[in-house]
């Protein structure tokens, strides 16, 4: 237990410290790198709680795909650090409001269980103990049976968002020579090479 407690405090301390660094570091690329560290420690916390599937998915999805693209974009931006500092106080009230609302919501979620015990019964599918079912199987059993419509609906929302992003950025330029692989592959010798008999002494 001592080792687990030590790991917990290590992961959570690093996660919180790097989260602070995300918003306070001067260089945006450093911010993203600290965000990576924060995600990684969150994944460690998941594994420590026995939710190894969630931990690994966090790393694969957020670190392996989302943050790579994020870092990619931030590297390309030409950001003036001094200009960003000026805006800090201007946006502070909005940021503080959002943070406060999130905090209140967290308290409501966690407090709801304490205030009204019957709220716990809303969660109709109890979590099976981890010794009996691996949590990948447990999640699959719940997601694809009880919550299948919600799960599919969220998939459709993401699909729509993806198609929307493609539609917004797709543009067909005219006057560009494009490679047509089919045309290339089906080209025969007859239509691409023309043999000319050239008389010596006169041009083509």
């Amino acid at each position: 237990m001592v080792v687990q407690a030590l790991c917990f405090y290590l992961f959570s301390a690093v996660a919180i410290a790097s989260a602070v660094m995300v918003i306070s570091s001067r260089n945006p690329v450093h911010s993203v790198l600290f965000l990576i560290l924060a995600f990684f420690n969150a994944a460690g916390l998941f594994v420590l709680m026995g939710a190894e599937f969630l931990g690994m998915i966090l790393v694969v999805v957020y670190l392996g795909a989302v943050t790579v693209l994020f870092l990619f974009v931030v590297m390309m931006l030409n950001i003036n650090v001094a200009e960003m500092r000026q805006g800090f106080l201007q946006y502070l009230p909005i940021g503080a409001t959002v943070g406060l609302i999130l905090l209140v919501e967290l308290f409501m979620v966690l407090g709801g269980w304490a205030i009204s015990p019957e709220a716990a019964q809303v969660a109709q599918v109890p979590t099976p103990p981890p010794e009996q079912v691996s949590n990948t199987a447990a999640l699959g059993n719940v997601l694809y049976t009880k919550y299948v419509y919600l799960f599919q609906a969220s998939g459709i929302v993401l699909l729509v968002a993806m198609i929307g992003a493609i539609v917004l950025t797709l543009r067909t330029r005219t006057g560009v020579r494009r490679q047509n692989l089919r045309e290339q592959s089906f080209r025969t010798r007859d239509e691409s090479v023309e043999v000319k008999k050239v008389q010596s002494g006169s041009g083509v």
Partner: peptide
């Protein structure tokens, strides 16, 4: 339990 996911991650 999630060895494949670990490797992929």
């Amino acid at each position: 339990n999630v060895g494949v996911l670990y490797l992929f991650a």
